[in-house]
Design a protein around this nucleic acid. Structure first.
Length: 606
RNA sequence: GGCUCCAUAGCUCAAUUGGAUAGAGCAACGGUUUUCUAAACCGUAGGUUCCAGGUUCGAUCCCUGGUGGAGUCACCA
């Protein structure tokens, strides 16, 4: 039996043809799992076909039910409630389901025609260490890669590293001026944090400089002449800060000079830039390793920031883009409900969009990917809409395969994370904290294996984040994230561990379970296991790992209940024991595999 | 202000894509262990699904209009 839902649909279509002499396709019927409070395994909903068959839904359900019981051996009983036909399936059917799981360990994997897919995620700036927002990004990217791979695709993991620009120059300048040759080793700091400190130092020095300037004659004059209607002094200077940086600031001027030198390939500047970015990469790599992720290819903005100009030239030639009098190049996206977008500055230099166009093209040429997924926060929704629209306008062959996996920002219970207020949660600190919390909990139960403790802590953190629908903004409660009970990663790990413990005791001699009359809980579990493939399919289609997380939790919950009620090793009969051993082994395998799709590792004991 | 997204139990999240009496976890209260490890299980309580209309056999889901919140509207990335 391939797909029981489809079997039910076609049986229903067949019944309708015989009883009503009406041709309906199997797709006209809706089949769902039966609600827990009703008897039955699957439910056929007949409201939708009531009009065409010119009969009340309950009568249709009764007629189809009668027909199915007569002609389908796998139907053991049916029950009609309004327009719902609840179908119970035979023991033979359920046994055959377990047989199939046992014979084909890959039964849970969707089978799709293989595509080449690129997933871009992480994509940090090199001036600061990674934080909680990056963790959500990385977990989403990683599990998207895992899920698409499980569907049979050839998936490549890439990131674009924002390694150039004014931000890193700020860190470089601060280190140059105040660092006195200090290194991460000498300071005893993780090296990306070390660089981040210099960025913070720059901002501090700059703020000081700005504050002083506000009291100077020049500052006061600016305020008086530009303040406008009813802005307070503080309000005005907050908005003026960027302009001050570019127009008046001594530190700003020096940082920009550094950027110009960098663009001029000044050897000394390049050496400093390489050195500081090297520190950052060492730190990032450690964080990635602790998160359990890796990449196939890194793109650096220092290499790609000049890309895309030939695409622009081509677009001008084909009159997809247009040039203004000042020489700047634009594209009209009003047909897509967007605005006109700048593609090249009047001085001929590129902007963010130019670079992204070029990078997409380059990746397509390098990987020949049919799909490219960008895991980027939803604050950039507009940018990606525009990017994809431009690609479509250019007629790029890969335009239809571009997808922005847009996820919501992570808030704290107190509100947004703000670096100015020091409320940003650092990625490394967070991992240390959850593992420490797991260690404390483990100490109570005499479990000190550091690798197990690490897996438990990381599971708590990862599951807490990945269980939420990516598209929605989420609240990260640090206290709740280290919770090891309830709807958590460790709860699921515990279900797996309980099974491993039973299997260890059970020994290896396998007998037959033919003839075992399974109970309702076992049907429910088999039913759940059978849904795994569809869940992963949906998760791949919607780019939503949360679906997999919620499925794994539902399965673990159902198993915990089963564990509590039903004995496996001291079962009432040999066939029962054998059936249950195969069943729970399958459950363990699905728990392990689905959690692996989320980047969560299972302990063997806990 | 324009555009986009969001609003579900005190809190954090679900809801099989329009199906039955909207479900979990946390927090609260009560119970379960000489057990295949209690990181577990069971129970009680908690809801006008932001509001008002509409579409239909049926709406948390679709449409219209409000309210509240977020994002975005740079020759930044």
């Amino acid at each position: 039996m391939k797909d029981i839902t489809k079997e039910i649909e076609s049986a229903a279509a067949e019944a309708v043809k015989e009883i009503y002499q009406v041709d309906l396709s199997p797709g006209d019927f809706l089949v769902t799992s039966t609600k827990k409070e009703h008897a039955g395994d699957y439910t056929l909903v007949t409201f939708a076909v009531s009009k065409t068959l010119r009969q009340a839904p309950n009568l249709i359900a009764a007629a189809i039910g009668e027909y199915m019981q007569r002609t389908r051996s796998w139907v053991s009983s049916t029950e009609v409630l309004q327009g719902f036909l609840n179908i119970s399936l035979s023991t033979d059917y359920w046994t055959s389901v377990l047989n199939e799981f046992k014979a084909n360990p890959d039964f849970w994997k969707p089978v799709q025609s293989k595509e080449k897919v690129l997933v871009e995620f992480a994509s940090p700036n090199t001036n600061k260490p990674l934080h909680l927002g990056h963790i959500r990004n990385i977990l989403l990217g990683w599990s998207t890669y895992k899920i698409l791979s499980a569907c049979g695709h050839d998936v490549h993991r890439v990131q674009i590293v924002n390694d150039r620009g004014i931000a890193i120059c700020k860190s470089m300048l601060a280190w140059q001026q105040f660092g006195e040759g200090m290194t991460p080793e000498a300071a005893g700091m993780k090296s990306d944090h070390f660089v981040g400190e210099w960025y913070v130092r720059f901002e501090k020095e700059f703020s000081g400089e700005y504050k002083e300037w506000q009291q100077t004659k020049e500052g006061k004059e600016k305020f008086d002449s530009l303040k406008g209607d009813d802005k307070s002094e503080a309000e005005f200077f907050k908005g003026y800060k960027n302009f001050y940086f570019n127009a008046h600031s001594q530190l700003g001027r020096e940082a920009r000079e550094l950027l110009l030198k960098w663009e001029d390939h000044d050897p000394e500047t390049l050496a400093l830039w390489r050195r500081m970015n090297g520190w950052v990469y060492n730190g990032f790599n450690e964080t990635y390793k602790n998160l359990g992720v890796e990449f196939d290819k890194l793109y650096f903005e220092s290499d790609t920031y000049l890309l895309g100009k030939d695409l622009i030239e081509d677009g001008i030639k084909r009159e997809v883009f247009y040039k203004k009098e000042d020489g700047s190049v634009w594209v009209d996206l009003t047909e897509y409900g967007l605005d006109h977008k700048l593609l090249l500055r009047s001085d001929g230099t590129s902007v963010y969009m130019t670079q992204d166009l070029g990078t997409a093209q380059k990746r397509y040429e390098e990987f020949d990917a049919q799909r490219m997924v960008y895991v980027v926060a939803d604050e950039q929704n507009y940018h990606f809409q525009a990017l994809f629209a431009i690609m479509a306008k250019l007629g790029a062959p890969y335009a239809q395969g571009l997808y922005h996996l847009s996820y919501g920002m992570v808030d704290l219970p107190e509100g947004k994370m703000k670096s100015r207020e020091g409320t940003v949660i650092d990625a490394d600190d967070l991992m240390t904290d959850v593992i420490e919390e797991a260690r404390i909990a483990a100490a109570d139960r005499d479990m000190a294996d550091p690798e197990i403790v690490r897996r438990i802590g990381m599971a708590a953190l990862k599951f807490f984040i990945i269980k939420v629908d990516p598209r929605k903004r989420m609240t990260f409660d640090p206290k709740a994230s280290v919770d090891l009970q309830g709807q958590t990663g460790p709860y699921i790990q515990n279900a797996y561990v309980r099974i491993q413990s039973i299997l260890r005791r059970a020994g290896d001699d396998r007998k037959s379970y033919e003839g075992y009359m399974l109970n309702e809980d076992e049907k429910l579990l088999l039913n759940l296991l059978g849904q795994c493939r569809q869940v992963i399919e949906s998760a791949a289609r919607d780019y939503s790992p949360a679906l997999v997380a919620n499925y794994a939790f539902a399965l673990a919950k159902e198993y915990h209940r089963y564990y509590h009620d039903i004995k496996v090793l001291q079962a009432e009969s040999d066939v029962a024991r054998e059936f249950r051993l195969v069943l729970i082994k399958t459950i363990a395998s699905i728990l392990e595999n689905t959690m692996d799709l989320l980047g969560i590792e299972m302990p063997e004991r806990m």
